[in-house]
Design a protein around this nucleic acid. Structure first.
Lengths: 257, 257
DNA sequence: CAGTGGTCTAGACCACGCT
DNA sequence: GCGTGGTCTAGACCACTGG
């Protein structure tokens, strides 16, 4: 009866395509509210469940965001830029006049936003890949500083730093609060990091990450693991950052010589 | 009647949690096949639709993969490592004995896999952010080399390189095939790239990327944009790489001095 | 062919956010 | 209270994969 029926492509997909086009066209702008499910169901002459299936696909693609009672809106992305290669550079700290806080906070403030971080210190068995990078045995305990970083009081990223216990025993790094020293706390303890290795993988968040960071459906994360080595080539610190894709743009500046 | 009913958490979520735990526990290993929907529906005493909802959530998290007629399996991740900071380094090419192919192919081969790439050359109006990085006007035409790269004949990543038209007019870079020169083709044309800026964002793939790369649901991508500058600080090339998260691990090695 | 996931419907009730 | 999305059911048919 209906010509759209029986065609090769399923209805949910046809509807998703149409809506997707409206969004990429710009006819639906970021922040715009979509019609309620019931109205769309009437418009496209399908059941509410079918409309929901189409909308769910677009949500999983990161194009839409739903909230009960308020409706669905087109998602807006305004990632802050994170200048990775400037991090941990003493040089940069000195150039910047050393404002008395870490590079992350400085970087955020420079983009006109307000940084804050919660810190928690634990002694744990490290995850396998962290143990590997730190060069400790799988059962050896390590100290981890877990930070939740906020921008304008909205959760922004998770950053866990792992240290060998002997390295930080009795130092300010064992205190569950924001610590800072010119050039970095490790440097002030006599440990100079001369080389970094950074690993980055892209994946969907775990359930825990999703709730800690308040991530809407369809938001992937970058897991950035930075290992710092001292002058002897011994690993000093492993830092694992969980960075949601909708809030982050990473930038490296490289001078190969 | 049923004690699980009416509890705070929806059934789909409870079921998803249980299955997720089986996977993270290791009771369900990567590659394992799940019971069919109907069996699970019986087991958990819910309708098939409810089971499907739970399974869909896990699929969107990247934990499961479904195919019609074959069932659902637990996803396995075996990303290849991509040594970013070695790329485009003439130094590295010379050290490696310069095998007569680009750094990507060399890197893939070194991990015991077989690289291949399809190349297509087009003249287009560049996307806004590319025009910006290349330093051309929004209506100015540019040359783009579009590559689809395969590893063991499986699509691996998309890599589009943009050049100003005047730069590559009449050079081998206009040919739609694999080109190579020691130190890079640009270098052999007298254009030395001395500085790189890399931007990386994490997002869900577009529909086109999903089909071109054959991405299963729940697979995010990294969009890596590398801009190369010549000795005068003028942008020479912008390369945009779309790298699926399930196939990539990026590595940078940095020596801040 | 049997077994599997994919689509679709009609109808019901619930939970949240706003005014 | 009303409007919104979220959950859930029962049942039907289709489309792909494999033996």
């Amino acid at each position: 009866m209906d010509p759209t029926r029986g065609s090769a492509r399923p209805l949910r997909e046809q509807i998703a395509d149409k809506l997707r086009q409206l969004i990429t066209n710009g006819e639906l702008q970021p922040g715009d509210r979509l019609s309620p499910e019931e109205v769309l169901a009437e418009q496209y002459k399908v059941s509410r469940q079918t409309i929901r299936a189409a909308l769910q696909d677009l949500t999983a693609e990161g194009l839409l965001m739903a909230s009960r009672g308020r409706g669905r809106i087109v998602r807006a992305y305004k990632p802050l830029t994170w200048h990775i290669s400037r991090y941990e550079s003493r040089h940069h700290h000195e150039e910047a006049g050393d404002p008395g806080e870490d590079q992350w906070s400085t970087d955020v403030r420079a983009q006109g936003r307000e940084p804050r971080q919660d810190v928690k210190v634990e002694i744990v068995e490290p995850p396998a890949h962290v143990a590997d990078l730190l060069g400790v045995g799988p059962d050896e305990l390590v100290v981890v500083r877990r930070r939740i970083r906020y921008v304008d009081e909205v959760p922004y990223q998770l950053a866990d730093s792992y240290f060998r216990e002997t390295l930080v025993q009795g130092t300010p790094l064992m205190q569950p609060r924001d610590v800072y020293a010119p050039g970095g706390v490790l440097a002030s303890l006599g440990h100079i990091q001369t080389r970094y290795v950074e690993d980055l993988v892209v994946r969907m968040p775990t359930k825990g990450e999703k709730t800690q960071l308040g991530l809407p459906a369809g938001t992937p994360v970058a897991e950035l693991t930075r290992t710092g080595y001292d002058t002897d080539g011994k690993p000093l610190r492993v830092m694992v950052t969980i960075a949601p894709g909708d809030r982050h743009r990473f930038r490296w500046e490289l001078d190969p010589t």
